[in-house]
Amino acid sequence: MDTTVTTGTAKESVWGGGNQPLGASYGKMMMWFFIVSDALTFSGFLASYGFSRFKFIETWPIADEVFTHVPFFHGNYPMIYVAFMTFILIMSSVTMVLAVDAGHKMKQNAVIWYMFLTIIGGAIFLGSQAWEWATFIKGDYGAVETNGGRILQFVNAETGERAALADFAKILPSERAHHERKNGVWFYEEGYKPSFSLDEVREGFLANPNILIRTEAIVQEGEREGHKTLLTREQSLEKIKDAKLVVEGANLIRNEYGSRLFADFFFFITGFHGFHVFSGVVINVIIFFNVILGTYERRGHYEMVEKVGLYWHFVDLVWVFVFTFFYLV
């Protein structure tokens, strides 16, 4: 932008400062410095995700079976909602770049509107991500964990569909002693408790001959290649003996979808990305008010919009990679 700070003129000496060999102002350069270093951070995260995944390549959860929900709709719709989130983010990137373009032309009102739409897009994305997390944490079918920390899921042999614990668990009347504050010197609130005890799941499993166990292992060859291994009823009866714990939903320690690292990386990477989106929205809001107040009109240029725009596009760029490596591959 020739209207911004100084551009290198023939009179200046090369070492005297003031010239811009890369044709970018100080602020823009610093934004690029930050983006490059942040890109390396995200590469590190995604590469370590790849490390863990290649390490457990035969047992890693299949994303299509995990992220299958769409708000307000029942049923199995893999990918649809994430695709929607991707589209929202790309769309808000477009309104951002339109705001930058309007800024170059010094159209204050257009910048205001485009910034506003960008912020709305960011807010929709954040809401979607919160919903995605809530669904992931809540879980849908439930599973049991073995002594070795492997997850066993259940399948209805008649329909071939996954069976939820509630479908077959037998309610056993039992007394549970509650630890109360008055009885303990050190009292901790009761933590995570599944809706069925292990005995209830096991009894229900033994009583329902059409429930089979599905293990984490992905079939490597044959007709069912690429699907999780489904045990026969005899094998299942043998396998249920290893069960140690009922797992519902996901937390940082264990999750019903399979490998523990899967949920850890999900929380960590999408969380870190979501934090970037959040801070992007906050910065966008600040710039938005500055535009309304006419700060950049008085300054004579809208380079600030361009800088926050770079950050916002970077967040979109990261999501493109997260989308591929978490949901597609």
Partner: peptide, 22 residues
């Protein structure tokens, strides 16, 4: 994904208009 990343960086982050060295 790399194709998408290219167009986001080149056109939205307007790397296309920056100096080659940058």
């Amino acid at each position: 994904t790399l194709v998408k990343a290219y167009y986001i960086a080149w056109d939205f982050m307007h790397l296309r208009d920056e100096k080659t060295s940058l």
